[in-house]
């Protein structure tokens, strides 16, 4: 159905971004928009290039998982960024993109979307989408960041992927209506661009503040893994540098960095 397709002209029309969307490509299908981004980088692609695809045959999730979505039902995109950001701040790339995605969906649909720390998008604890970032380093140059975003848009209940660990949903299910993906794409690029400029201006604490505000996990009981050891406790707060402060079951407080994996949530 034609009406389901992303319309490049309409995405570009009235798009007032400064970096993100300088170049936009829409593809019928590909292995993964991440692969296309890497190919474009090897041909010296500029910062801000965006690749959309209607379908991916090898969509990637985090931690070696795949991301499956029926054709033209999701919003699948990759953005090429080259921020001169210190490596220890690179987690803010997840922060700015997660915040921009939440802002977009909250503003457009008034849905209670939140961030499942640090990079999943959830509505009432059901997964709506996620963010995956890959880096590529060219010798002697700044690191290239390839930001992948996947959002379940017009999937019906039968089309939702089966996740073992998490319930899944789509915008159409939550909103009970068909969603204009082109409009969503344009609004997302607009928000991503605004928040990327905040990142470039080094207003890091503002990004963390919003990221934390949108986070669904505070107060939840979880098991977290650090150095091959598992800890159980409830999340008290997230620090300015993105660390998780847990109140462990034994009454002690312990801090976990962003790379320590949340294994699962308890008693929900």
């Amino acid at each position: 159905m034609n009406s389901d397709r992303l319309l490049l002209d309409k995405i570009k029309k009235n798009l007032r971004t400064r970096v993100i969307g300088r170049e936009i490509i829409t593809l019928e299908h590909t292995t993964s928009t991440m692969d296309i981004a890497k190919q474009m980088l090897s041909n010296s692609a500029k910062e801000g290039a965006v690749i959309f695809s209607e379908r991916q045959t090898k969509g990637r999730g985090r931690s070696g998982k795949t991301w499956v979505c029926p054709k033209s039902k999701g919003l699948l995109l990759t953005i090429i960024l080259k921020p001169a950001i210190p490596p220890e701040k690179s987690y803010l790339l997840i922060g700015f993109s997660a915040v921009a995605a939440v802002k977009t969906i909250r503003d457009m649909f008034k849905l209670p979307i939140e961030i499942d720390w640090p990079n999943d998008l959830v509505i009432n604890k059901k997964k709506l989408g996620g963010i995956l970032i890959e880096t590529q380093k060219e010798t002697g140059k700044d690191t290239n960041y390839i930001v992948g975003i996947g959002i379940n848009v017009n999937l019906n209940k039968q089309e939702l992927p089966k996740h073992v660990d998490k319930q899944v949903t789509s915008l159409a299910i939550e909103k009970e209506t068909f969603i204009d993906r082109t409009k969503l794409a344009r609004a997302l690029l607009q928000n991503l661009d605004s928040w990327y400029l905040i990142l470039k201006e080094e207003r890091y604490e503002y990004i963390v503040e919003k990221w934390r505000e949108f986070c669904a996990n505070v107060g939840r009981k979880m098991i977290i893994r650090k150095n091959n050891q598992e800890y159980s406790g409830s999340l008290v707060e997230i620090s300015n540098s993105g660390e998780l402060m847990l109140l462990l079951d034994n009454g002690c407080r312990k801090t976990f960095r962003i790379e320590h994996t949340i294994v699962k949530y308890l008693n929900e």
């Binding site: 985090r62 690179s90 987690y91 790339l93 997840i94 880096t135 590529q136 962003i258």
Partner: peptide, 13 residues
């Protein structure tokens, strides 16, 4: 290979 650090997948050359 890839090393996942701070939730970012980093290519290693």
């Amino acid at each position: 290979c890839i090393i996942e650090a701070m939730k970012i997948m980093n290519e290693v050359k």
